[in-house]
Write a protein that binds this DNA or RNA. Structure first.
Lengths: 210, 210, 210, 210
DNA sequence: TATGAATGAGCATTCATTCAT
DNA sequence: AATGAATGAATGCTCATTCAT
């Protein structure tokens, strides 16, 4: 290779394959997805797929982990809104909650959720890995923020990871309910109302004593 | 035939097949489950399976709906504990929450949860049906109980279905978190602590005003 | 059995089965016909079919031979028209030819023709038997009539079976051509014109010398 | 690749498959033929068959049409003998008729005839296509020759396609009779005598007037 | 005798994966 | 590095046929 270009091209092709894989897996599910369709979507020949990623299973792992990182990043970014809580805590939480739900509820997020579930049987480590890159990472980040708010007496003092877990449950539980296990898209209005209701309940329960 | 017995035999065999189907689908997932294994598990020949249930898909539907009814029944029974709330509301809720989580967290409940998720792509009506027989039915039953408690001023007055949804979210969200999407069994101790924490937060948020 | 009645009922049922068999075989062909459909058509249970006729193959044989006799009878009846040849030989032959083609060209005749062809591989004796009951029997009967006409000098003298064979070929060949191997029904007008043309050619070739 | 060779290999394999398909279909009939046997006969793996020809049905269509072209070519070649009619018309017709019957009566021709008949139910377009490539094409070619002979006054003037149809019927009708619907091979001696008899009758009927 | 129920055998088709080019 | 071609392994489903009633 003269400079970085040829390598670049190869990397691009690999990325294209992984992206195509996620698209196809999202469309068909793991078992019904066929490597041929992934190759077609990536505009490559089937053996080329095997040259880059050994296995259908490997393909699946890379596709899901990449998507998990994307979703995880967006969630953490939403949580970062809590670094600058204004005077009105409710307002700040509402904003964060809205962001969070939007991040999880879009097409990619829902597909990832479904695929992660379907992976539990044959790829438990992958399900674990996705969980770590999304839910666990998000919970940790949120727990950090909540701990700060407890320190500054704006929330009742208590184990911050439990609080984080419950806050997220108040958001995702109703979402799962409404989207029928991520089957259908949830209208923006519903998302907002779920967010507000969750925040309201959370803040009532976690308001500072007195 | 002497009495209803011969018909009985047929029904028994059909039930055996449906039960076997659930077992195998739980073990392998829909796509990887093969009808032969279901037949073997039910101790019947493969065509006998087809004589009773038309399709692999039909087999799947019946197996899941039967399991959903079982799980749903146990959940509703747990909620019925709220019909006789003692003096200590916390204690009653704790008991119910424990029952509820045990019902959802056992092997069958977790398998059903996974399978329902995997069904969303190819059997959306089935996912919907399972949802109706479990989560939706449970939410409705719980909302009824909460409405009564609001009337008798033991809970703050507010839309009961929202309250029910949030209560259940406070239980199932952490469960899903801990079980890694229903992959692993959650130890009884953790179940209890999740139940208590959920009840605590819920009652704080929904305590009667003032 | 008290008198002939119960036996009658049994015979009727057997006939119904054989008739149903021909209907279904005609509709589907031998391989694609399934015994269940025959049983349904005859309004009987499947094992009843096996009680009366041992085999799918046996069913086929009886169905075809019965149909062959029916068709054969009609053909021979047509040939009998030659027993009373009027003054105008052409007219008599035309009448017979028309009858003959109508007999072979109706739904049953065409179905029998197709089925006999499909039987040659696996049931050569059956194909032979059908041939004997239809084409061969018809040829013989016609040869008898032609021999008489030769004796009475109304036709040129020559081997009568060859003449019969050729006469029938002049009728059935064009029919097979027009019906696309018995696939389609041939319009009545075409039948008449084929008949007349065949008779014309035949009588020209077999006209008495001088 | 040096020249066109590699492509050649593929074509050869495809042709081998189609040829094998005809062999097996001829041996078993459509329904009883199994793709595995075709693959074995062609010395390929079963999926290779599917790589080249989509379907069992497609396989059937290609096999029959190829065979039909072969038979059709030989028939047309036979008819071409009439382009140079010698002084003795009978002799020329006898030669052509012999050629014609040999072409239709060999193993391949008889198999094609049987298969075309069995195809009428499920592949009417195919039966039509085979008919067009053989009988119809042959009739047309013969009609052309007969028209020329009429013009040169060596045959009585009349519609040439009707004459062609009748001539062919005088040959194939008795053949079908003797071969019991193409079941058995017809001895060469019989072929000759059928040919001569057919020609004799035809020329008597179509001799120029006066 | 008539039938509901059960089964053994068979077959088309799909797909992940590997070679040779 | 990329691909056309080939294959081994699997699986859903159908159907003729037989028991037991």
């Amino acid at each position: 290779m003269s400079d970085g270009a040829p390598t670049r091209g190869r990397i691009d092709k690999r990325e294209a394959i992984v992206r195509a894989a996620f698209t196809v897996f999202a469309r068909r599910g793991y078992d019904q997805a066929c490597v041929q369709e992934i190759a077609d979507t990536a505009h490559v020949a089937k053996p080329t797929v095997y040259n880059h990623l050994t296995d259908k299973a490997t393909l699946f792992r890379h596709a899901l982990e990449a998507a998990a990182d994307t979703v995880g990043n967006r969630c953490v970014a939403a949580v970062d809104l809590l670094r600058a809580p204004g005077n009105d805590l409710t307002e700040t939480f509402n904003a964060m909650a809205g962001e969070l739900l939007s991040a999880c509820a879009d097409e990619q997020g829902r597909a990832l959720h479904r695929l992660a579930h379907s992976a539990t049987k044959d790829f438990p480590e992958l399900a674990e890995s996705v969980h770590r890159r999304t839910a666990a990472r998000l919970t940790d980040a949120l727990a950090d923020r909540l701990a700060q708010l407890m320190l500054s007496q704006r929330l009742r003092s208590c184990p911050p990871d439990l609080a984080a877990e419950q806050f997220l449950s108040l958001l995702t539980g109703p979402m799962e309910h409404r989207s029928r296990l991520s089957t259908y898209e949830v209208p923006a209005a519903d998302i907002t109302s779920i967010a507000h209701a969750g925040v309201d309940t959370f803040l009532r329960a976690y308001a500072p004593a007195g």
